[in-house]
Design a protein around this nucleic acid. Structure first.
Lengths: 172, 172
DNA sequence: ACCGCTATGTATCGATTCGATATATACTGT
DNA sequence: ACAGTATATATCGAATCGATACATAGCGGT
């Protein structure tokens, strides 16, 4: 998924490693490490998806190739797998503008469904734990409750995004 | 940190691998994989922190040793490092009941401070991105805003935990 | 009684990612 | 002129993931 993110960013304009790290970190949910980033750049270079351009001084700027553009387009238009990570979804969101409106809504609804299911099972587990004498630890119950609240807020957020998407679509 | 979590759970009572995976998953923030779990059990066994007991049928229950209890107590009473992960903090929280009240508040306040700092820098980055013509992507701005809102909610949650802690403390 | 499905359980493999560290240059304030 | 900080590339070992293999238990349906 890091490869996906790198392709997406490099596609907009040539970027060097440090810049990619900063750009990813500034999205707010992932501080990628150099130990992940540089090997990923090698991988992509070896696959012919990106290529190094001279760059200024010690910098090594990478630009996307036609093959890389294809790879990105394929990844973007492939439906997210059910097992997709929170992070994978967020990266996908960061580039969701590359999809047409109806596909965007699909991606969002898919994520919403997954969160809903997860929330339901979390609630069951919580009810269960609370009524179990052994599991009465205050902090553990608090963790569960907070996790549920966060999931609810994520769902509401996605609903907002979907609503905006539909509003924009019907305005055209 | 997985080792820490395993020790904490096994300390309460002997548990086998699958049970540990379930117990960790039920806290709601981490679905640990078998590929992490079983090697971790080996590690801990080799260090003499846990030992396998017969267990029923195909199960291999692990119980904590005295040495393991020491290791857990040391980890628990060591102040969290500044670079500690979200997940590390959550695991710490799950066992926070093992610390005296004042130390609990310390841990919580420390986390709060870190989140506050993070939030401040996120806000700066957001303001910056919004005023930058290049970074106007709707979804990317939405991601940043949501990340900030989540952090704010985490801070409020921690404040609640601290308040409860103080209330309980002063009631004694 | 038999079949298939799902849950339970242990285990390992390769790939990914992390966290720490090394190294070096550019810029900034005093 | 100098120190300190930001920028930048790179690599190492360890932790973790995700997929897969394998096997038994238990349960519902026919």
């Amino acid at each position: 998924m890091l490869d996906f993110a790198i392709l997406g960013l490099v596609m907009e304009r040539a970027r060097h490693g440090y810049e990619l790290k900063r750009a990813l970190g500034e999205l707010g949910f992932w501080k990628v490490s150099f130990g992940s980033l540089y090997p990923a750049l090698r991988r992509l270079e070896k696959r012919g998806a990106i290529e190094a351009t001279g760059g200024t001084g010690r910098r090594k700027a990478y630009r996307i190739t036609d093959s890389g553009r294809d790879i990105f387009a394929t990844l973007m238009s492939t439906d997210p797998d059910a097992s997709e990570t929170e992070r994978a979804f967020q990266i996908r969101l960061a580039f969701l503008g590359h999809l047409p409106t109806d596909r965007r809504v699909q991606v969002l609804e898919g994520r919403r469904a997954k969160l809903s299911t997860h929330l339901r099972s979390a609630r069951e587990i919580f009810i269960d734990a609370r009524s179990n004498t052994e599991n009465q630890d205050r902090y553990r119950l608090a963790l569960m409750e907070h996790a549920m609240a966060t999931t609810e807020s994520d769902i509401a957020w996605i609903d907002g995004l979907v609503a905006t998407e539909r509003r924009v679509a019907s305005a055209n």
